[in-house]
Each structure stands twice: as C-alpha cells, then as structure tokens.
C-alpha cells in the first residue's frame, strides 16, 4: 500500500470544499451504514477528495474538473479501481488526447505504484485504445531495472510482445538481465516464452538452449532457475532426460569434479528414474545409483527435503520391480 501522494505537494493542496468552482456540488460522504463495523480514520484531504468523487460518480458528471478530481483521487488511492474506471469513461466522453494520459500513467507506474494491478490495467487499456505499443518495452525495462522480478511488468511485457509481435531483440534483453543476475527466474521464464512464441524447440534451437543453460550452470551450479530451464528444454528432446549426450557428459564431469549441488544430484536421480522405468540396465543411470544419490541428498546435501528424497528412492525401486515382473511375464 502506498503513501498518499499527489503531484503537488500536500501543503499547497486546496480542499475541494473550499474551491469556488466546485460550489455547485454537494459532497457525498462515505456511507458505512448506521453502525460502522470498522471505524475508519481518513485524513481530511482524503475524505474531501472522495466525498466529491462520490458526488461526481452519482451525478455522472464527465467534465474537465471531474477528470482532474479523478487524478487527485487516484493519487491518494491508486488501488481504487472505481476511480480508474470512471476516469476512463471521462477520457472517452471528452475525447481526450490519450498520449497525455499515457505520460501520466507512466509516471505513476514508474515512480509510485509499480506493483499495483489497477495502474497496469489502465496502461493496457490505453495501449489497446491507441493500438500503439511503441513505448511499452521501454516502460517495462525501466520498471524491471528497479525490480527485475516485478510480475506485473513481466505480464505487461509478455502481453505486448505477443499482441504486437515484438519478439525481436528479446533474447538479447534477457541475456543482459541474466548476466546481471544469473538467478533471475523471471528472465529464464521469459526465455522459454520467447522460444515458444517464435521458433519453437527445433533441433537447432534445442541445442542452442542446452548450451545456454549449461554455460550458465557452470558459472553458478546451485542455481535453481537455470537447472529448471534445462529440464524444461529437455522436455522437447525426443530422447528424454537421460539420453542427451551433451547433458549427461556435462553432469558426469561436474559430479566427478566433486560438485554436489542438490540440483545436479536431483537431475541425476531423475535420469536414473527414467532409465529404470524404461526397463533399461544402464551402467550409469540405474536403481543402485539412484538410491545412493537419494541417500546423499536426504542425509547430507538437501536435508530439509529428506522426506522427498526417501519417497523418490522408494518410487524408483517400485518402478524397477514392476519392470522386472513385466520382463519375467514376457519371458
């Protein structure tokens, strides 16, 4: 929740009840019923602005002064969606220059309310009305420069990229974010979004993305986001999780170098699980190794999730027995 903040400093704010040009309007106080369940202490300015806002809402007045009033009301409480709705109705009715409105909402988003649903929605409606997304990438980049994981900004960015086909340059942008913070999960997710929206995971792209994930894992091996991305990419490998040579060689080398990142061990467990459930007797990815890895994880490297690793060991063992009995039945 934000602080009260209008463009002008509060000391110069003249209450609506003292403004000559508003003399014809009777303010409508908040109706909390006869016995308010929760007593609310509004500041004088807050009460004044909203008493007049309610009056305008009731009379349906759509005028310049009403537009300015919604500006004050929105500044005091940007999360009040009724204010934004009414403001849009006035904008339409007065046929206002929407580019001015774009500048206004941009300031509020960037400086004031980057995590507020209503302001982002207002922005989206304006872009739809204008059918112009030229400034949107820049806007989201400004917000993401301050908080690279802002969900609203990412949502807006995905919407404009998809709607206006603005995929160009996105991989490069993501790259710059990941080199700033290799653990930025939002950026990793965006990478998936771009591939899915453009080329899809063709063999060439699959290779490229595996290389990308592995080279980043090499830098920080305990990075959940990069490992998750690698798993996501491998969903598109027809050979599965455990038959991509580049990946298995990378993992084995990392393991042999003494690395015990829980994410590495977790992937190895899943590789074993895949081979076991296919009934293969792989020298590297088998039940014995899975059990050892799960043990190591539950006792040493990821103790907080010990129950999960015990479950995994049991599940893989069950799979292997099922496979055995199936093989016997076939013989």
């Amino acid at each position: 929740m934000g602080e009260s903040s209008s463009d002008e400093s509060d000391t110069t704010f003249q209450l609506y009840k003292d403004r000559r040009e508003w003399k014809d309007v009777t303010p409508v106080p908040q109706d909390d019923g006869d016995q308010p369940i929760v007593a609310i202490d509004y500041t004088e300015q807050f009460k004044d602005v909203f008493d007049y806002f309610r009056a305008v809402l009731q009379s349906g007045e759509k005028s310049e002064r009403a537009l300015n009033l919604t500006k004050d009301a929105a500044a005091l409480n940007p999360a009040n969606y009724t204010v934004w709705q009414y403001r849009r109705e006035i904008l339409k009715a007065l046929n206002k220059d929407l580019n001015e409105e774009m500048d206004f909402i941009e300031k509020i988003i960037v400086y004031n309310q980057p995590k507020n649903y209503q302001v982002w929605h207002h922005r989206k409606v304006l872009v739809e009305w204008l059918q112009d997304a030229a400034k949107e990438k820049y806007l989201t980049e400004t917000v993401l420069a301050k908080d690279a994981k802002n969900y609203h900004a990412w949502q807006h960015r995905q919407w404009i990229i998809k709607t206006f086909n603005l995929y160009d340059g996105e991989l490069e942008y993501i790259d710059s974010l990941i080199s700033d913070d290799i653990r930025n999960n939002s950026a990793w997710n965006q990478r998936y979004f771009v591939v899915m929206g453009t080329t899809g995971f063709t063999e060439e792209v699959l290779n490229r993305e595996i290389d990308y994930a592995l080279s980043n894992i090499k830098v920080v091996t305990e990075n959940e986001s990069a490992w998750n991305y690698l798993r996501g990419v491998l969903l598109h490998d027809k050979c599965g999780l455990s038959r991509n040579k580049k990946v298995t060689e990378f993992c084995e080398e990392l393991y042999n170098s003494g690395n015990r990142s829980p994410f590495l061990l977790a992937l190895l467990v899943d590789m074993c699980s895949e081979q076991v459930s296919q009934g293969n007797e792989d020298p590297l990815y088998n039940l014995e190794r899975a059990k050892n890895l799960c043990n190591e994880l539950s006792e040493k490297y990821d103790t907080v999730r010990a129950k999960y690793w015990q479950f995994m060991a049991e599940t893989i063992e069950k799979k292997s027995k099922k496979e055995e009995s199936q093989v016997e039945a076939e013989n």
Binding site: Y151, Q155, Y192, F193
Partner: peptide, 12 residues
C-alpha cells in the same frame, strides 16, 4: 514446464 502455474499462459 516446471509443473507450476502462472497468471496467464507462459507467465512465470
């Protein structure tokens, strides 16, 4: 792909 859900298709 990670089994989770976002607000809209392909959202984190």
């Amino acid at each position: 792909f990670d089994g989770g859900f976002g607000s809209r298709p392909l959202s984190e």
